[in-house]
Design a protein around this nucleic acid. Structure first.
Lengths: 210, 210
DNA sequence: CAAAAAATCCCCCATAACGGGGTATACATC
DNA sequence: GATGTATACCCCGTTATGGGGGATTTTTTG
């Protein structure tokens, strides 16, 4: 182990105790260095360009910009940085969203130091570290959308519908035309053999398409 | 352990493999006896009066009458029987509904035999056995509707809206008039300071009202 | 019991949203 | 060259929605 080129880390976590604890523990480990730590995404985004860390530990539950929303923003300015999510609750949606948005791995805050260091190392080695229970969720999630008759886009739209969004809202949000949304919805209905938003949601949920 | 007065159990579960598996495993345990097992609630209701089990293992996902709907019916004819719900998915709504309707505990189907036997014993001893992750959901649910500005009825209706149901569907399902639903929705919007279904859902989810 | 809160039901109105019918283009995969 | 996907546009009639007024009854609570 050489101390000349330590693995550089930035921590984004609003809880001061956890933030300082992690900073201390990682810095105490040979070959790992915490460049900076921030309590919110906004601050972090301002300084990350200078920090240029190899790995970011990113809390999911943050005030202001949430951890998951932060992923694309961080990836935009630092495309090569690995992001490890920190979470207390292993919520399925969060896990899956974060991974699809570009997070490399997942850690629960109760994981011990050794695990966290291992995870950082693993991620710079190209791995995808995550807690066991999180891995289970991911597997379940992958099982989910597997044999769905819906395309990616259709699934996205159905999820918006399940959130109570109108066609026009969906269109605006996805930067596509209202008519395109209509087309997709028509196809969703045909594929699911339903004739209403309600039935589509029900059918999709029953079959774990969403 | 005396074998003269075994704890009597009835299983209601549509999957034959699980049904027979549980029956076998419970009968193989000293002091526990499965009186009967049924693949649906309708059959069970016809024979439960004769069975008079102390404990019923009740699947949530049943054809015909769903497990949760069955709880009050079972409680009606056998008020002293303890009901343990069996589930594969630890869905928050289901868990909470079942418990408020009179279920005593909750088990995931992946729980091992020992856990299930323990749960049966615990429930006849007056406990409320449930898997750890289910317990978490219950705690969350209790935290949830605490300081909600919405009334019970309004919350019910908002939940229906969040499931994509139209006013008229909600009205039919809740056996109330369309106009009543409209009134409730109007009040929901005022209380949440929103002007659309979408925003109401978002606001309610953010504040854990639903 | 009396007052307050919650739940129920009724009317009107204009607008927005919906579901269904077709058609068409660009693009990638196969 | 056929298929699948994502995109966009047209038409149509029907339904649902949100907001504005009430009113009544049941339930809860002080």
């Amino acid at each position: 182990m050489e101390t000349k080129n330590p693995i550089t880390v930035v921590i984004i976590e609003d809880d001061e105790t956890i933030r300082n604890g992690f900073t201390y523990l990682i810095n105490a480990t040979e070959n790992y260095k915490v460049l900076n730590s921030y309590s919110n995404v906004e601050d972090a985004l301002l300084h990350l360009v200078n920090d240029k860390p190899q790995v970011i530990l990113l809390d999911i539950e943050l005030p202001g910009i949430k951890g998951i929303e932060a992923i694309p923003k961080i990836k935009h300015i630092l495309p090569k940085t690995y992001i490890l999510m920190l979470t207390v609750y292993d919520n399925e949606d969060n896990v899956f969203n974060a991974l699809t948005k570009g997070a490399s791995g997942y850690l629960t805050k109760s994981d011990n130091t050794e695990k966290i260091i291992d995870a950082i190392q693993e991620v710079v080695d190209g791995g995808a570290p995550m807690s066991m229970n999180i891995a289970k969720i991911v597997i379940k999630s992958f099982h989910k959308n597997q044999n769905s008759p819906l395309t990616k886009r259709e699934t996205e739209i159905l999820e918006q519908i399940a959130n109570g969004k109108s066609r026009s809202k969906i269109a605006k949000q996805m930067f596509i035309d209202l008519e395109t949304v209509k087309s997709h919805i028509k196809n969703i209905y045909i594929k699911l053999n339903v004739h209403s938003r309600e039935d589509a949601i029900k059918e999709a949920k029953n079959n774990k398409y969403i």
